[in-house]
Simulated assay, not measured.
Amino acid sequence: MKKVHNLSMIEEVDGFAPQISRLVSMMNYTRHTTEGAIRGLTVEELDFHLDDQSNSIGMLLQHMVSVERAFQIMTFEQRELTDAEWDELGIAIELGDRAKDKICGRDLDYYWSEMSLSREYTLQELQKRDDDWLDVITPYGWNEKANHYFKWFHVMEDELSHRGQILLIRKRILV
């Protein structure tokens, strides 16, 4: 019988190595709370900007997807992004004015589908790894190194940070 995972417990998840499963447990909770923060948003709400310097909720969701895809390449394929991959992902990773022009007019189903597909691939790949994989150290940024554990922690904490922004924007929309 397959064990049902309790979102409020950081614990082992069936199908994953012990430490990886704890990371997955945290990622599952994070995604669950992100889902709650965006539930029911319209295209207009997803495209809303607090001011001319701010990101929209849609931009932040696309950013989450692009960051996760970039870390999939860097950790699962153990390589840097190609120029073509950067062209595809870079706008949402960097955000800013170019992203404002490109990331708009999409409905919640689009963003949720992108987020779900990206996460599904992440989970499939994490199931193939053992806990020693988390300790593998590779380049990170321009002059840094980081282990895979940190890199996937970063994907999760980036989502948490942007979820906070989403909640703030959502409160302003509903005022």
Score class of each variant (00 low, 15 high):
84 A>S: 15
69 R>C: 05
61 L>R: 05
89 L>C: 12
56 S>W: 06
61 L>H: 09
52 D>F: 09
74 M>Y: 05
78 Q>P: 09
68 E>S: 04
88 E>R: 12
77 E>T: 03
81 L>M: 13
54 S>Y: 08
82 T>H: 01
57 I>M: 08
55 N>T: 02
63 H>K: 12
73 I>L: 02
56 S>I: 11
54 S>I: 06
84 A>N: 13
89 L>S: 09
61 L>F: 13
79 R>H: 10
89 L>W: 12
76 F>T: 05
82 T>E: 02
76 F>A: 10
65 V>Y: 12
83 D>Y: 09
63 H>L: 10
78 Q>L: 12
87 D>M: 05
59 M>A: 09
78 Q>S: 15
66 S>F: 06
65 V>H: 09
75 T>L: 10
59 M>L: 05
70 A>G: 11
55 N>C: 04
74 M>A: 08
68 E>I: 00
76 F>P: 05
80 E>I: 03
62 Q>N: 10
57 I>L: 10
53 Q>P: 04
64 M>Y: 08
82 T>N: 06
73 I>G: 00
66 S>H: 09
83 D>C: 05
59 M>K: 04
64 M>G: 10
85 E>I: 00
52 D>V: 08
77 E>V: 03
72 Q>R: 11
56 S>H: 07
53 Q>K: 14
83 D>T: 13
63 H>S: 12
61 L>E: 14
78 Q>D: 15
88 E>P: 05
83 D>P: 11
53 Q>T: 14
66 S>R: 08
